[in-house]
């Protein structure tokens, strides 16, 4: 299963290499990793997509939290979230298929950001499956170059920060009961 984690960290030199070094050393599989600034100066935010089982993700979270520069980690895999990624795709074109491509891109609410005689660059922002599906379509025309980010993600509809709540707790609450002490400590506890 794929898990989406968010980590906040002090924007110190080398923090990215600390995080990626720890992931490599512990033999964790990262599908994607995005870093960027946040609303608080000096704090960066990383969105990870990790492939693994629950025990592995539990370890990823705990090992991340052990890094001194990492201030907070959240597992938002089981919450309603908004996750978006972006891709730039250079598609080979000719006079015959150009308008067809434009139509498709419009359906996907993408944008044509550059046009040349024999190619154009398509920009798409959206959930992973939407990006996948447009890439799939465009590949019929020949993709000569592509770059794609991993997702950045945010939980929906909550203003209060509920940091350090384990997925076991979310599941318990989803089932309409309070989490047991064991569950609360499962991924690090409160």
């Amino acid at each position: 299963m794929k898990y989406t984690l968010i980590a906040w960290m002090r924007d110190k030199p080398g923090v990215l290499s600390r995080v990626s070094g720890m992931m490599r050393r512990r033999n964790f599989n990262i599908d994607s990793l995005q870093v960027g600034h946040t609303e608080s100066p000096g704090i960066s935010r990383m969105t990870f997509v990790v492939d693994g089982n629950e025990r592995m993700v539990d370890q990823v979270i705990k090992q991340l939290r052990k890094l001194v520069d990492v201030t907070r980690v959240e597992d938002i895999s089981e919450q309603p979230i908004v996750a978006r990624e972006m891709a730039l795709i250079r598609v080979s074109t000719n006079a015959d298929n150009r308008s067809e491509i434009v139509q498709m891109v419009n359906i996907y609410r993408g944008e044509i950001v550059d046009v040349a005689m024999d190619s154009m660059i398509v920009q798409i922002v959206g959930a992973q499956d939407r990006v996948d599906s447009l890439i799939d379509l465009l590949s019929n025309f020949g993709i000569s170059e592509m770059v794609r980010t991993g997702p950045v993600a945010m939980a929906r509809g909550r203003t209060e920060r509920t940091a350090r709540r384990s997925s076991a707790v979310w599941r318990a609450q989803a089932n309409g009961r309070d989490a047991t002490a064991t569950e609360r400590f499962k991924t690090g506890g409160v």
């Binding site: 370890q59 705990k62 090992q63 052990k66 064991t182 400590f185 499962k186 690090g188 506890g189």
Partner: peptide, 17 residues
């Protein structure tokens, strides 16, 4: 004391962190 050691190799029934 170290949370990361809990459940790393052996998953306990009662983790006292």
């Amino acid at each position: 004391l170290d949370r990361a050691e809990v459940g790393k190799n052996v998953v306990p029934d009662v983790p006292v962190i």
